Computed example of a mutant assay.
Amino acid sequence: MDLDPRQGLFGISVAAELTGVNAQMLRTYEARGLIDPHRTEGGTRRYSQHDIARVDRITSLLADGLNIAGIAQVLALEAEVARLQERLDQHG
């Protein structure tokens, strides 16, 4: 059985443990638009494997000296490159 890497599986405490980032910072990343965890009907955050990998990427960029605004730019550019690569793959 293959799981969708974007399916919300982990609560905030588990996501914090998996990433080494405290829950408050996860909330900050969400508020800044860097991550977008799934919300249950009751409003509980559920983090996916994709979210966990994205937090790991954010942590890496922070360690490289980027600030949150710079990280947002890098992530947007990486998403655009992936989108363009997908288009090339479809037409190539």
Rank of each mutant, 00 (worst) to 15 (best):
L77K: 08
E17K: 15
P37E: 11
M25E: 00
L9R: 12
I35H: 04
D36N: 14
H91K: 06
I68D: 08
I58K: 02
Q85F: 03
Q49N: 09
A76S: 12
D56G: 09
N22H: 13
G20A: 10
L18K: 07
Q85M: 11
Q73S: 06
L34W: 14
Q7K: 13
E30R: 11
Q7E: 15
I71E: 04
D64A: 11
G11Q: 12
H38P: 01
R39F: 01
H91C: 00
D2Y: 12
T40R: 14
L26M: 05
A72P: 01
G20K: 13
A31F: 08
D64I: 02
E86S: 08
E80L: 15
G8K: 00
Q24W: 04
L77P: 00
R45G: 05
N67R: 07
A82S: 09
D4Y: 14
L75D: 00
H91R: 15
F10G: 04
L61I: 05
R32I: 01
G65N: 06
G65P: 11
I58D: 02
T59H: 07
G70F: 08
G33R: 10
I58E: 05
R45H: 09
L26N: 06
Q24A: 13
T44W: 12
V21Q: 11
P37F: 09
A16E: 02
L88D: 08
I68V: 13
G70C: 10
R39V: 00
L9G: 01
L18Y: 02
D4S: 14
T40G: 14
G92T: 06
I58H: 02
I58V: 09
T59C: 07
G43M: 01
T40W: 13
D56S: 15
A82N: 05
L62T: 13
T28V: 15
G65V: 03
A15Y: 03
I35L: 07
Q49V: 15
S48M: 07
A79Y: 00
G65S: 03
M25P: 01
E80M: 14
A53N: 08
Q90T: 09
R39Y: 07
A69L: 13
R39D: 02
